[in-house]
Amino acid sequence: MAKDTQNFTQDAALLTAYANGDPDAARDLAHRIVPRILGYATRILGDRAEAEDIAQEVMLRLWRAAPEWRAGEAQVTTWAYRVAVNLCTDRLRAKKRRRSDALDDVTEPEDGSIPAVDGMIEADRQAALSRALADLPDRQRQAVVLRHIEGLANPEIAAILQVGVEAVESLIARGKRALTAALAARRKELGYEEA
């Protein structure tokens, strides 16, 4: 927790330094934030190129917000995740509209975040997880990814999704139930023993 607090303080200090004209602050801050936002957007959208657009847009908005930034009101990473969540939601909605307009079949997400695991069974299981995540409702997917993959605490997720902590717990629980059901349907195929 102390490390988190230190990170938040450093992020805020770098943003203040950027706003005051420090030419090195932007590079340091970008190296701290961009990998996390890029990874998150890739996991949510399943498309690396779109995720890069999201990461650039999040940082663009951060640079614009820097002169008016009030230290202590929001944490820089929480703010960046919140913008990324909203941008990803917009992209997913636009994708769904395009698919329904074109009456296309839903295609498999091209997930650039699947880990390179040893063995075909593990790879199949991770691919199945990606597919199941992609089929979740947007809010449930965001909550599950932020909690179980990004490793954020529920209060921070609540701040990012702009809902209460109880709502976050509910989203995660429903999301995990849906994931379990989706994986259970392919239990044998994924090499799990029957319960």
Binding site: P35, R36, L38, G39, R43, S113, P115, V117, E122, R125, Q126, L129, V144, H148, I149, E150, G151, K176, L179, T180, L183, Y192
Partner: peptide
């Protein structure tokens, strides 16, 4: 099984590309 898969994914995410 789900928790194991999520933990594996989280470990991967902790070392971002």
């Amino acid at each position: 099984n789900l928790d194991d898969l999520l933990a594996q994914r989280a470990a991967f995410a902790a070392q971002p590309a």
